[in-house]
């Protein structure tokens, strides 16, 4: 049930939208998003877009993954960048 695949929002019509991934298009509900924009990558769950993917954060996590081999985290240092630490 919980398989959220990132899909690209290609059309918006009121509270419905069309998303696309790997050439497959689907209709999704957009009622749960504050500001859906065409071109956003969204996570789709049970027929609704539940959240947008933040491209900058995605890049930061990737950078962190690539650094994993190079950096030996200091004891006491967190494994994630300090910004927005929750």
């Amino acid at each position: 049930m919980c398989v959220g695949i990132p899909m690209k929002l290609v059309a918006i019509e009121g509270e419905l939208g069309t998303v696309e991934a790997a050439g497959v298009e689907r209709e999704v509900g957009l009622a749960l998003l504050e500001h859906p924009r065409i071109g956003d990558y969204v996570l789709v769950h049970a027929g609704y877009a539940i959240e947008q993917i933040d491209p900058e954060e995605a890049q930061e996590t990737l950078a962190l993954l690539r650094e994993a081999g190079l950096l030996d985290p200091e004891p006491g240092a967190t494994g994630a960048p300090p910004r927005n630490a929750s």
Partner: peptide, 12 residues
């Protein structure tokens, strides 16, 4: 602590 690996989707 609570840490977030999945920031590309999850906001605090």
């Amino acid at each position: 602590e609570v840490e977030n690996e999945y920031r590309r989707v999850v906001a605090r």
